[in-house]
């Protein structure tokens, strides 16, 4: 499977960012260190008439509001637990906000306190990957992003990776280059260095020899309804995702194309499409959203939004795309907030 047409690195921005992009790590031990860096960051944004958004837990919010005083009213506070709902959707929503500000000649200033550091390993990895990809995707917007990591209450391995995904680290009001920072492609490859766990022996396997895509959907629907008991709404998202990935495999990949399906212990429905092709090096695998306002760019990126999770491995042995859809509405942690952020204003 070669890289789909819809997955290139975005072209240069059409709008000139008002300020250079920054994505900084703020490792802190206590509230004093947090406030010493976060408060000037937020105040600076208010002075510059940026759109200032603070994604935090309750404790940090109370601290910041106390320190900012009346200025806190002009900061948009978001609850971190629900904001970090779904890596691709949260990413899309934040990037759309940043693009919108850049389009107006302004800037998004985002304080983003990670609320995911104690979630399951697989999900933590996707948020860490988002931290790395953010350096590529948000550059065109000139956004300023500051990520405070509480060193004492965060697993050391997560702090270590935060140093690999943030180009700069803040100490007080100074920012210095982060010594261990990894180029995003390198970090992305590192995330996928381990092979995917093997499908269970009980997985349902279907060899796809170019039948009409209609029959593949009929087969997946039947299996998902009967075996996985997937409700209609997540099933529709899964069908769109499977159709896209099989279409890519038929257009760019090599036979044999195989579809496997199984259910996870928690009830999630997994569809895996593998083929004999190999994607080119330096692919973003649909992690980098297309630029706004350019039609015809829905592809693997949209598949990531539709599924709870997408895992891709490509190499000499072929390519595997594993799509996971939770039976619950929307995905593992998707709150109404992340969804409504991109709801169509024309409908209201």
């Amino acid at each position: 499977m070669s890289e789909p047409d819809t997955d290139p690195v975005p072209p240069p921005p059409t709008t000139r960012p008002a300020a250079p992009f920054s994505h900084r790590l703020l490792p802190y031990d206590d509230a004093g260190e947090l406030l010493a860096a976060a408060v000037p960051f937020l105040r600076g944004g208010l002075r510059a008439a940026d759109r200032v958004v603070a994604v935090t837990g309750l404790a940090t919010r109370v601290l910041l509001q106390g320190e900012l005083g009346a200025a806190a009213d002009r900061v948009e506070f978001r609850d971190a637990a629900s904001w970090y709902a779904h890596p691709a959707r949260t990413f899309a929503s934040a990037l759309a906000d940043a693009d919108a500000e850049a389009g107006r000649g302004g800037r998004l200033r985002l304080l983003a306190e990670p609320a995911w550091t104690r979630r399951p390993d697989g999900e933590v990895r996707e948020w860490q990957r988002a931290e790395a990809i953010c350096n590529v995707a948000f550059a065109r917007t000139g956004a300023a992003i500051l990520c405070p990591y509480p060193v004492r209450s965060t697993p050391p391995a997560v702090v270590a990776d935060a140093r690999r995904t943030h180009p700069e680290t803040v100490r007080g009001e100074r920012a210095v280059p982060t010594p261990g920072y990894l180029e995003p492609h390198a970090y992305n490859d590192r995330c996928d260095s381990e092979p995917l766990p093997l499908p269970p022996a009980s997985a349902d396997a279907l060899s796809i020899a170019r039948p009409d895509l209609y029959w593949i959907r009929a087969y997946v629907s039947d299996w998902a309804r009967r075996v996985a008991r997937t409700p209609d709404e997540p099933l529709q998202r899964l069908l769109v995702a499977v159709t896209e990935v099989v279409t890519n495999a038929e257009r760019h990949g090599s036979p044999p194309i195989t579809l496997r399906m199984w259910t996870e212990p928690g009830g999630a429905c997994v569809c895996e499409i593998s083929d004999g092709g190999r994607w080119p090096e330096e692919s973003w695998y649909g992690f980098v959203p297309p630029p706004p306002g350019v039609p015809g760019r829905l592809g693997l990126w949209a598949v990531r939004l539709l599924c709870s999770r997408v895992d891709i491995r490509t190499g000499a042995a072929g390519t595997t795309v594993r799509l996971t859809v939770e039976n619950a509405h929307g995905g593992s942690r998707t709150g109404a907030r992340a969804r409504s952020a991109r709801a169509d204003p024309r409908l209201n």
Binding site: R89, A92, A96, D232, E233, Q236, R237, V240, P290, P292, G293, P295, R297, L298, A302, L305, L306, R339, R342, A343, D344, R346, L347
Partner: peptide, 20 residues
């Protein structure tokens, strides 16, 4: 509704020029 749901998830901003 199921088509609407899919497009909402993907983002209407990805489909400029289409109206409901």
């Amino acid at each position: 509704s199921q088509l609407h749901e899919v497009i909402t998830t993907v983002g209407w901003n990805m489909l400029p020029g289409l109206q409901v």
